[in-house]
Design a binder for these strands. Structure first.
Lengths: 333, 333
DNA sequence: CTGTTAGCGCCTTCAA
DNA sequence: TTGAAGGCGCTAACAG
């Protein structure tokens, strides 16, 4: 590993000149520039980022913090991908911190973390230690996912779940459906109540009464989904079902098959998430571009760092409603 | 941000004493230790890793390099997860470098890379610039995936594709299958020839002649898969098909349905990869634990860094053959 | 057992 | 336009 000193000696100039050449920070005559560059090449020299960071108090490193991988794995992965690629583009490095099962940043905590220029935190929690630390140290933060009220002043980024549920419901209504069962996600999650809001909004906009008994909650396992689907299908009063995910939709499909109920002939199905392309008929669904969300987060944090932007709460609408053979038209009679 | 100096002043001791307290590097009396700790707490002090790294020439940062996400997305994601979690456990940080579409580490190249203690490189290529750079700078490397011959001296880690294909084929043979079509991956890939080796090994071990015309190659798209499946199924001479992935299996399923061919009644199907759980009947397949592979890579690189281990070429056998309803028994008559 | 000193590699005034 | 000196925050001899 050669240093700036080696280069300056070989080139017969001073350290600062070498520095200036590499950073374009002051004019250096062409001749000397050449000499420096040649020397650098010969020595395979490149600036040590650590030392630079120390001197500049800027590290070009961003921490990406996540935990509880597993439940929403695919979503997280897409976000990681988006963040990393975008940040690399901006010449920032991404340091990945994945906390195992709820341990959060453990005991050693801060001891482990590099001085980073900024942090992107996924699915922040109320009373999040990580956030507290960064706030107190003045590190810029961007929150991705439902941000707790207590952190409303911080920059955040999320998908518009109200809008998504609204669009899905509306699409069904436009196809003539009025009695729409909704297997929503687990209660008490922000996402769950947001989805419900969207569902209700679409109904009321179309003068359809909201019937609370049409709402179910499911934990995103096939077993629970099948159980719910069974009782919903037995009632026989619905023309469509919205499910919280493709996994739940699968449960509905299987129960329907068992009961000889035809999709979409007897009932239409829409999944609020997932990336399934295996069900037959292919299930209608919403596809959210989480990679884009990650990219937006990356951009956001760099803007804040560069003071080009104040903190803000963005709601992204990067999604697509995909209507396939699982949704039929209800004949009007 | 308070520094070691602030702490030493407040505690009324010298810098080195503070350093010693934080690193357990020399005995410090309990009284002074207490004073230092208290002062540190009051100032919310913690060591600046950058400075430490500069002084120690050890950064506790590992670079994880990948590219061409997309084709094998899920596999990559699992590896990332395994690497990050394991490395975090060992108190190393992971810096993620994702190169967009084949650009590799671009122009700025090394300028962008922090001084890292080691590198984990996924799917290295022949003449890989990244590897060259790290070798020349003496940075420890672990290769994950099929390592080019030119880098045989480096540490590497891979899944045993020969073994996997062998096990799958053997399982089919044990179920009475003898005429087994094999839709392999793209030719000229190491993985493709390895899988073929495993297939052949299982056949010859069971005194079944290898018939080259049973072998097909597919590029892992549904369209191509369907085309191949169509001609394979029309021949009607096979009792089983091995596919390179679940996507290809899906193609086979769909063609079979179209043609009124029953799985597993008329033909059995086995997928050499994928994580599908949607096909009906569920497809028999091999599940590789790529997260474990990532964890192993993480462990490997730390061992090399700590000089606890020389470079080595590991073949992991973390996989499971899952036999489901898509494979039937061939009656002996 | 504790403090002093000299770097680690780089950047940045400030003079020349 | 170029160079010398000091400092970023920390560690590691070496004294005391």
């Amino acid at each position: 590993m050669s240093t700036i000193n080696d280069v300056s000696k070989l080139a017969g100039v001073s350290k600062s000149t070498v520095s200036n050449v590499f950073n374009n920070t002051k004019y250096v005559s062409e001749e000397i520039t050449d000499r420096v560059l040649k020397a650098a090449q010969e020595l395979n020299y490149y600036p040590n980022k650590l030392a630079t960071g120390l001197a500049n108090k800027k590290t070009y490193m961003i921490g990406l913090f996540l935990e509880n991988l597993g439940e929403f794995r695919s979503m997280h992965h897409q976000i990681i991908e988006g963040v990393a690629m975008k940040l690399n583009e901006f010449n920032y490095n991404v340091i990945l911190y994945i906390d195992r099962d709820n341990e959060k940043i453990p005991k050693g905590a801060k001891l482990r973390i590099e001085p980073i220029d900024g942090a992107i935190i996924l699915d922040p929690e109320i009373e999040d230690i990580r956030i507290k630390d960064f706030v107190s140290s003045g590190t810029p933060i961007v929150l991705v996912g439902k941000a707790p009220k207590s952190y409303e002043n911080l920059s955040s980024l999320d998908v518009d779940n109200i809008e998504i549920a609204y669009s899905a419901t509306k699409m069904l209504i436009q196809n003539g459906h009025k009695k729409i069962a909704f297997i929503n996600s687990k209660p008490n999650l922000t996402i769950t109540s947001d989805r419900l809001k969207g569902y209700i909004k679409a109904l009321s906009e179309n003068q359809i009464d909201f019937e609370p008994s049409y709402i179910y909650n499911c934990d995103n396992t096939i077993i629970k989904a099948k159980k719910l689907a069974s009782s919903i299908l037995e009632k026989g009063e619905f023309s469509a079902i919205i499910t919280e995910s493709d996994v739940v939709a699968l449960g509905v499909y299987e129960e329907a098959k068992t009961k000889g109920i035809n999709i979409p002939g007897d009932i239409s199905v829409f999944a609020l998430g997932g990336m399934d392309y295996f069900l037959t008929p292919e299930v209608s669904r919403v596809v959210v571009d989480y990679k884009k969300l990650g990219e937006a987060a990356a951009k956001q944090i760099t803007m804040i760092i560069d003071n080009k932007q104040q903190s803000s709460n963005l709601i992204l609408n990067k999604y697509k409603i995909i209507k396939t053979g699982s949704v039929g038209q209800v004949s009007i009679r």
